[in-house]
Amino acid sequence: MKRIMIETEKCKGCKNCAIACMKAHMPDGVPFSLTDTRLEARNVILLDKDKQYRPLFCRHCDNPSCIKSCMSGAMTKDSATGHVYYDPKQCAGCFMCVMSCPFGVLKPDRATKTTVIKCDFCKDHGSEPSCVKQCINQAIHVEEV
């Protein structure tokens, strides 16, 4: 089972990972734009109290709080890959998953605030995370766990 591993000290805050994620998750008919609010990254780089970069990616947890808190069955764990997937059609928009994610990486979508923005490990791109491919600092890599 594969996970994205983070080497925080290598991050330079360039946000290539965020742009790669936006490009990998473009809604149909929406061209890439840095100003279109419908395009969102599933990852984020924050600064910690020492102003060091803290890149955050979905951990696809072994015991995912998002799944436990989801009452509608929109969050599911793939038994083969261990990846946690989100189905917007099943989602009631209660955002309990957002509230319960211990990493603060889930968020309501910015444009409509009706669905959840969630990493899918680029399953439509061969399950090879676009963020990892675009990180020029090797601050993130995929590891077999």
């Binding site: 330079k12 805050g13 360039c14 946000k15 600064l47 970069y53 020029i136 600092n137 090797q138």
Partner: peptide, 28 residues
């Protein structure tokens, strides 16, 4: 705008030509 790109901060991003933007890292 709190998260700044380290390449920009350190002056190590060049977009003076079509080959760019080139950024300096230990591997490049």
């Amino acid at each position: 705008q709190e998260v700044k790109c380290e390449f920009g901060l350190q002056g190590c991003c060049c977009r003076l030509c079509a080959n760019g933007p080139c950024r300096i890292t230990p591997d490049s």
